[in-house]
Amino acid sequence: MSTKSQRVAYGETLVELGKENNNIVVLEADLGKSTMSCLFQNEFPERYFEMGIAEQNMTSTAAGLALAGKVPFINSFAVFTSGRAYDQIRQTISIAKLNVKICGSSSGLSDFGDGSTHQAVEDAAIMRAIPNMTVLVPVDAVETRKMVRAAAQYDGPVYLRINRNDLPIITDEDSLFEIGSIYTKREGKDVVIFANGVMVSKALEAAQELEKKGISAKVINVSTLKPLNESIIKEAVKGYKAVVTAEEHSVIGGLGSAIAEALRGETNFPIEFVGIKDVFGTSAHNYDELLEYYGLTAKAIEEAALKLVGNQGGNKL
């Protein structure tokens, strides 16, 4: 399985978009070599604004550029775009649904060395709570390309949660990406695993192991965290016994919460969350070590599924 980083795909797609549309502008807060917005800078210096280490000003400036008809992409680490500039995103951009694209780069634990200050474990929850916001979580570099294009085409604020590291490519160039759709990566009969980002490939691994134990798991890539259509989620679990969610994010407010919200009111239907258990990140030597430390593994997903349906209990919906 080949691998590629989402952030390189992101930067390359910005360049493609820049060639197609003169209104694409890019703002950066001194992390261009990490977010890969530097690729756009090289091609279109006149449409690239180095805003210095001042994320709040960058965000409101982007609001102004959108008001002048531009399609601004703002860039920093996820922890800063979602956190440092939260109020700017909420007040001017989101209330008026301005056409600003927010790149939350090095999201989750993917900036493994830098520790808790730089690891965004709650960014998706923060962004998801804001009315009018769209939240996208790409599964790989290929989906990232489609997502950046979809974000540019969509008229309104979009938060893109971009991973820093090389991740397995599990989607193909020809498959469709639409904001608001979910994508089944593997069919199954007993349990549904909803996952996004790096956790989709781990869910697929878990499904293989579960198969050996006689449990058939369907794996769905929920790369649009918001808007999440309740009826699509309800339809996806119909006839199944249980749901596991898996995300590289706090169990509070992210994918698990979104799925639980969608399935509320369904009786006697077990759900288990695989995610970061309401704690901050920490430094580690490499990414995999950190994912393991926080229990973001195929094994954890497998165990969550076994806990719910291992005894073949529960009712089918």
Binding site: V25, Q56, L65, K70, T92
Partner: peptide, 23 residues
């Protein structure tokens, strides 16, 4: 623009001004 969360208007104004200048 939606303003009122104080401190943000000058940044928004800069963005509009930069956009107008690009055009």
């Amino acid at each position: 623009a939606n303003t009122g969360s104080l401190g943000q208007g000058l940044s928004i104004a800069n963005g509009i001004a930069l956009g107008l200048r690009l055009d």
